[in-house]
Write a protein that binds this DNA or RNA. Structure first.
Lengths: 188, 188
DNA sequence: CATAGGAGTTGACATTTGTCAACATTTCCG
DNA sequence: CGGAAATGTTGACAAATGTCAACTCCTATG
């Protein structure tokens, strides 16, 4: 839990009352490998900090083909962004790839904080901004780069992810088939 | 200018002092067709509200091939996200596609507001969140959909854009060649 | 420890998309 | 108004990637 508070304090030191409030509401969640944090059709009700482990958000089409939208490991804040903020049922389950430990709060609790501890809007804004920038870069990569370059790009920007994650999931994250990934890796 | 204030007030009503401060600093910018709002190599120093017109952010690779990262029309808030927030020189120029009218403030002015009118962090957070959700959806589309489906998806989610924008730019936005776009349109 | 299922590899082939070049059409400006 | 430049279309072909199927290897679990 320390690390979570440290991360937030690094963005900007928080007041004692805010810290105490956070400590009183944050809940810990433990997940086994392959366990779901969020199932399809539910409204994403929590936002979590990843303390240990690695998770993925993915999408499954009519033909059962899965596309991994993101991987997040230690130090990241995760939720099903679309569902959480728009309060609609998600199409994107979240699943633990390794045994994981998370700290989370609910949507209601988050907005209670935004309303009653205005200082926390600064943190919310900075964090959203951070992921926004990451997504902007990801969009560029998906638009401009071919399979091979996307793989190399991801390998340099997220080396930990590339190592930790099964190749079939990595392929779907890159937006290519597992066979194509297998082949282009051999040529490198 | 009214519309900008109305948009912000709709997110959450702002205090009189904040409104007055905003009015005292917001600057208007007029652009001719094809004029640049931001050139490559500069640090993006402003964030703008689009009051009239349509603009694009794009990227140009070594071979001079351009990829349009986004189109933004009336009612949107724009900047070169990466450069603006990370304070680094941009690779992504912004250009007016039609004659445009913008209202803008600088990075410094924005952070002055965040620090001295804490209530505005709420607005900054909500706006960033909004674009974050849009980008999440865009990533899904780029990852999962083929050329044809990406076109149809964009046509339904941003019909105005698809109509207003030259096809070669639209193609680069979709991440496909202009020939492919021309062909798939004929088949529909 | 046996084995079923998951993960990764490889080959053959189909499909999609890109590239290049030629041409048609539109738009912009002197 | 007229011509250059930008935009859009089409064809032929090449390159990239997907799909399907067979096979191997690993590993999780009864």
């Amino acid at each position: 839990m320390e690390e979570l508070l440290a991360m937030l304090n690094a963005i900007r030191p928080m007041s004692k009352p805010l810290i105490n409030h956070l400590l009183s509401i944050i809940e810990a969640f433990e997940l086994r490998k392959n366990q779901f944090l969020l199932k399809k059709g539910r409204v994403s009700n929590h936002i979590y900090y990843v303390s240990k482990g690695i998770l993925r958000g993915y999408y499954e089409d009519e033909k059962k083909k899965q596309t991994t939208k993101w991987f997040m490991d230690e130090g990241n804040v995760i939720t099903s962004v679309d569902s959480f903020f728009s309060r609609t049922p998600t199409f994107e389950p979240i699943q633990a790839i390794e045994p994981s430990l998370l700290f989370g709060i609910t949507y209601k609790q988050l907005y209670y904080i935004y309303d009653n501890y205005p200082e926390f809007n600064y943190h919310g804004r900075e964090l959203t901004q951070q992921y926004h920038v990451i997504n902007e870069r990801r969009i560029s990569a998906l638009q401009r780069l071919r399979a091979r370059e996307r793989y190399l790009y991801t390998k340099t920007t997220q080396p930990g992810i590339v190592q930790r994650v099964p190749q079939n999931l990595l392929a779907s994250y890159l937006g290519i088939s597992k066979e194509t990934l297998s082949r282009l890796k051999r040529k490198i």
